[in-house]
């Protein structure tokens, strides 16, 4: 997306030429001071020494990153070996977010396709139906999901009463519950970009393929998917990135086994047991992963535009 997209047909408008910075000053002041500066500060903090009971001592140290990646034994004097605890938490988070992305794609693509191929009037109603839950408070949605799938919740009671199952399913505090929560949180992010791509899809391509005796699924796989790929990739990024740092779904629906990055970082800054430099280092590693994903995406988009 280019910042200065053409206005009308005549390219960038120059009506307020020269006042760009004046008009942008409030944005720079607010976001610059209260987001950019704090993030830079976190980067600095991740290289400082920890103070017990939260806080930092202004002394350069790599301890936070060292603690993240290496294990030096109980007294810190043994030769370093790779420490898997935190890498494991990150790996699990990436895995969970990836799985949630795939689930959203498998459900979101057919949904987006179905909606985009309705007539224009019913299209907007279907789209509206899919997006309404997104606008309901995320916390309330997550709590509702927890209420529904609890061992003594309505879902289990219902299935028990029907004798479909003999004992509660035990869904809560599992990876499946977290997946359900992430799916529930971010599905519209997948549907909307794919919908936009399918809406622009030229059906004469499908017709040409059908004329050349391609079957229904061959057309989907070899013609449609490559054409709407930018929409699919955008959807995947929009689901993957927030899932990676998600806090509510793992905290409310998951248990100790589903501990994710969000909770790891949160823990370091809440209460007295926290280790600020370590939390800052974990934040920086998360931020780096997210920025890499976004950069790769942006480069791909640029390449696609040039083509």
């Amino acid at each position: 997306m280019a910042a200065g997209a053409p206005v009308g047909a005549g390219g960038t408008s120059h009506i307020y030429q020269g006042s760009g910075w004046k008009l942008l000053a409030p944005s720079w002041i607010i976001i610059g001071i209260f987001l950019l500066a704090p993030v830079v500060m976190m980067a600095v903090y991740s290289f400082l020494t920890k103070e017990f009971r939260g806080g930092v001592i202004w002394e350069f140290s790599l301890d936070a990153y060292d603690q993240f990646f290496f294990d030096r034994g109980l007294f810190g004097d043994e030769p370093p070996t790779l420490e898997w605890t935190y890498i494991g938490i990150f790996w699990r988070s990436i895995w969970q977010a990836g799985l949630a992305t795939i689930t959203c794609l498998l459900i979101g693509f057919p949904t987006a396709w179905f909606i985009a191929t309705r007539n224009p009037e019913s299209r907007s109603i279907w789209l509206f139906l899919v997006t309404i839950p997104y606008w309901v408070n995320l916390l309330i949605r997550t709590v509702s999901m927890k209420f529904l799938i609890r061992d003594t919740g309505p879902l289990n009671e219902f299935l028990l009463a029907l004798h479909v199952i003999e004992e509660p399913l035990g869904l809560i505090n599992t990876n499946f519950a977290v997946q359900l929560g992430l799916f529930y949180s971010y599905l519209p992010f997948m549907v909307l970009p794919i919908y936009a791509a399918v809406e622009r899809y030229d059906f004469s391509l499908s017709e040409a393929a059908a004329d050349l005796y391609a079957g229904t699924w061959t057309i989907l796989w070899l013609v449609i998917l490559p054409v709407v790929r930018p929409g699919i990739i955008a959807g995947c990024i929009l689901v993957f990135v927030p899932s990676l740092g998600a806090f509510l779904a793992p905290d409310l629906l998951g248990g100790a086994k589903t501990f994710m990055i969000g909770s790891l970082i949160e823990e370091q800054f809440k209460g007295n047991a926290g280790n600020w430099p370590f939390g800052a280092a974990a934040s920086m590693i998360l931020l780096t992963i997210v920025m890499c994903v976004l950069l790769v995406y942006a480069r791909n988009q640029n390449k696609a535009e040039v083509r």
Partner: peptide
Amino acid sequence: LINLPLMVPEVVTAVASLV
């Protein structure tokens, strides 16, 4: 910069603001 709040993970924004 305007889109920065969308790019930084929410939990990082949260702890960075607190600090």
